[in-house]
Design a protein around this nucleic acid. Structure first.
Lengths: 214, 214
DNA sequence: GTATGTTTAAAACACACGTTTGGAATAAAT
DNA sequence: ATTTATTCCAAACGTGTGTTTTAAACATAC
């Protein structure tokens, strides 16, 4: 068995458990027993639990970051007065998400859930890691949105993006428990794709709402 | 010193620490030392840490729940074809929030942050407690929104409310320099009232967006 | 003033956590 | 075949956790 196998088994198990329970609520013993590896393997391969958390994020944010930048470049957004539509930006984002290779289905929901947790749980080290690792991509995203919503003030645009990210992260965070609650005659668990279908027009409408400044 | 004093001191300290760090990341020793009470006081007065968490929420949600139901009744919403406007519902909500008595300013921000954590951190006991305690109020809220947005399908309305709640909870959760806000109460960092000003038109626009079903 | 119930205090409890250790097993290289 | 580096494993370590225990302090009523 090659080395990478243990590493990936740990990452796979950690990803699921973190998404399900949160970071502090998931112990290394849960992870290693789910992954069928020795407890010490985490500290051996990753160094610490915090480093493992960061590695979990790096595994999907790396590809996502690359896909977003590539997509923007392919469309020539931002050059020669080539201004993207807000829907197109969101679509690039969601479709980039779907392109990320995952070890299991429901990968998208898990990513979004993890991103929500990253913002919401006060893991200082994670925030620091994400900032210095993906600040460039985030700035690109902000720039694109700026191009497509020139009528907004910088402050209002910032907050609206914040609101939009909240809708996404929060929704994906609570899909499972909510569908359990409101299971009035609806048997099927809400599929993320279906939810995204509802999400996009909502976001577009909210982001392009008439400004309060006017 | 009367009994209630210790109880309130614990609740005050717990509220702040939970909002700042999360539930699992806050130990009873942090709470009791911040509250200047003995460690055993928590288990004596509340029974367990989980019960303390629930008590912190009860202190907020009890008044809020009453205010919402009273406000709806005062406006005769739902009777005699008296249909509320969506803005009015949101305004009732935000103003009810502001009316809740808090032991310190920034109470609203802390409350929203806690609600975000409640949804986001998978504290099973908390979710169960909130459900069986405030399901009635939540159902009223859903009903009012249904009255004001008759054009939406039940499913799409459900998800849009979800999106909206996400915006609120997430935004308040990630006003990052929270600690600064707590310490020097007149910090210039994002004031919740200002954010709400931006939030309302965004929510209205999103919630009333043209349906994807049409 | 004594008795009764309630609240505080200090200490200890059992347990789960992340991490470290030292040696066994395995693979790669000479 | 022997060496060398890497990976795995069982066990233990130290620390911090929520909770319990015991007794003292306090308040209240008779």
């Amino acid at each position: 068995m090659p080395q990478s196998d243990t590493v990936d088994k740990i990452l796979d198990a950690a990803e699921l458990l973190f998404a399900e329970k949160g970071f502090s609520e998931t112990s290394l013993r849960m992870i290693t027993s789910k992954a069928n590896v020795n407890l010490a393997a985490v500290n051996y391969h990753f160094g610490s639990k915090n480093a493992l958390i960061q590695a979990v994020f790096g595994r999907f944010l790396g590809p996502l970051s690359r896909l977003m930048e590539q997509g923007s470049k392919d469309n020539n957004w931002g050059v020669d007065s080539n201004i993207p539509k807000l829907e197109d930006i969101l679509r690039l984002y969601t479709q980039s998400l779907l392109k990320i290779p995952t070890s299991h289905d429901n990968g998208v929901a898990i990513f979004m859930r993890l991103m929500g947790l990253a913002y919401t749980q006060s893991q200082g080290h994670l925030r620091k890691y994400l900032e210095q690792q993906y600040a460039k991509t985030f700035r690109l995203f902000m720039y694109l949105v700026k191009l497509s919503t020139p009528e907004l003030s910088a402050e209002e645009r910032f907050w609206r993006i914040q609101f939009a990210m909240g809708s996404i992260a929060f929704t994906m965070s609570s899909i499972q428990p909510l569908t359990e609650i409101f299971e009035n005659s609806k048997s099927a668990v809400a599929k993320p794709d279906k939810v995204v279908e509802y999400l996009v027009p909502y976001l577009v409408s909210g982001l392009t709402a008439k400004s309060v400044d006017e």
